Computed example of a mutant assay.
Amino acid sequence: MTLTTTASLIGAAYQDGRGVAAFNAINLETVEAIATGAESANRPVIVQISENAVRYHGGLAPLAQAAIAVASGSTMPISLHLDHATDERLVGIAVDLGFSSVMYDASHLPYEDNLTRTAAVARRCHDRGAHIEAELGEVGGKAMDRACRDHGVHAAGVRTDPAEAAAFVASTGVDALAVAVGSSHKMTTRDAALDEALIAKIRRAVDVPLVLHGSSGVSDDGLRAAIAAGMTKINVATQLNKAFTAAVREALETDPALVDQRRYLGAGRDAMAAETARLLTVISSR
């Protein structure tokens, strides 16, 4: 199957009132795990590569080309998305490489600066046929989130305001909006309390799909409730990293003499694939 577009996956889910999963990949093994999990669950998926992963590898092209190859050989529809890009040049590189969507993140800036910069990036993306996601409010767990560090992600000042969200979408022309409703990045426990009433208010105010970042910290029932309240794109990274790392740790502890990377990375890949499939059945209902 050829690589599909994020716009098609999100658009179909949005129209049907269901969720679509977006899972972060860090290396080839994690891309393969996501693709294998999607095939096992018989669900489409969005593979995301973050700016942090790009920095880790020293560039986007190697991992992007590997992800395109894996997605193109999959039996399920898979799209490729650039996640949390703050570097506008990286957005252009991603589109050049074949990414059908990007998330440009200027949420750490004052509202007017976020709006102005996002609108400019959105125009360039649309000129090249790319789908763009932005963020309004501050989802905790990012190093740049000063307000979240000082006050916590549950403080009213960092939540997304519905009226402001509507104005932001109208002014920037973005295709999807990530909103702050109580989740936080990098959570290793799944006890985040989402504001479902706020999700519903934002959904009524905004005419583009909503995106939940920090979904690893949300329980299965919480994810289902968030989708029912109006979320469409559900981003997961840490929960999958937990599964991968736990399996690698177990393999190395079971056999302290183990040096063949394929054996412990393979264990991690298999565990992540299983958790990918499980989460897909929670997020992407039929």
Rank of each mutant, 00 (worst) to 15 (best):
residue 195 D to G: 03
residue 184 S to T: 14
residue 112 E to A: 15
residue 111 Y to G: 11
residue 216 S to P: 09
residue 277 A to Y: 01
residue 281 T to Y: 10
residue 79 S to E: 06
residue 252 L to P: 08
residue 36 T to N: 06
residue 239 Q to S: 12
residue 247 A to H: 01
residue 14 Y to M: 01
residue 123 R to I: 13
residue 106 A to D: 05
residue 100 S to D: 11
residue 267 A to S: 08
residue 177 L to E: 02
residue 151 H to Q: 13
residue 44 P to N: 05
residue 142 K to D: 13
residue 23 F to D: 01
residue 139 V to A: 00
residue 56 Y to I: 12
residue 11 G to S: 03
residue 62 P to H: 06
residue 159 R to I: 07
residue 167 A to F: 06
residue 213 H to E: 06
residue 131 H to D: 14
residue 146 R to S: 14
residue 159 R to G: 12
residue 232 T to K: 09
residue 32 E to A: 05
residue 272 M to W: 10
residue 246 A to M: 09
residue 187 M to V: 09
residue 218 V to P: 08
residue 197 A to M: 08
residue 241 N to Q: 11
residue 9 L to K: 02
residue 163 A to V: 11
residue 143 A to H: 13
residue 33 A to C: 04
residue 159 R to V: 08
residue 167 A to M: 09
residue 17 G to V: 11
residue 274 A to I: 07
residue 26 I to W: 15
residue 127 D to G: 13
residue 223 L to T: 05
residue 228 A to H: 10
residue 86 T to K: 14
residue 106 A to Y: 04
residue 94 A to G: 10
residue 55 R to E: 13
residue 86 T to D: 15
residue 189 T to C: 09
residue 172 T to V: 03
residue 5 T to A: 03
residue 96 D to M: 10
residue 14 Y to L: 00
residue 21 A to L: 12
residue 235 N to F: 04
residue 138 E to M: 12
residue 181 V to I: 08
residue 55 R to W: 12
residue 259 V to T: 13
residue 190 R to M: 11
residue 243 A to M: 01
residue 187 M to G: 09
residue 67 A to L: 01
residue 103 M to S: 09
residue 10 I to G: 00
residue 278 R to D: 02
residue 110 P to N: 15
residue 124 R to G: 13
residue 238 T to C: 08
residue 247 A to D: 02
residue 145 D to E: 15
residue 239 Q to F: 10
residue 254 T to V: 04
residue 38 A to G: 04
residue 34 I to V: 00
residue 16 D to P: 00
residue 162 P to C: 06
residue 161 D to H: 00
residue 286 R to E: 14
residue 148 C to F: 08
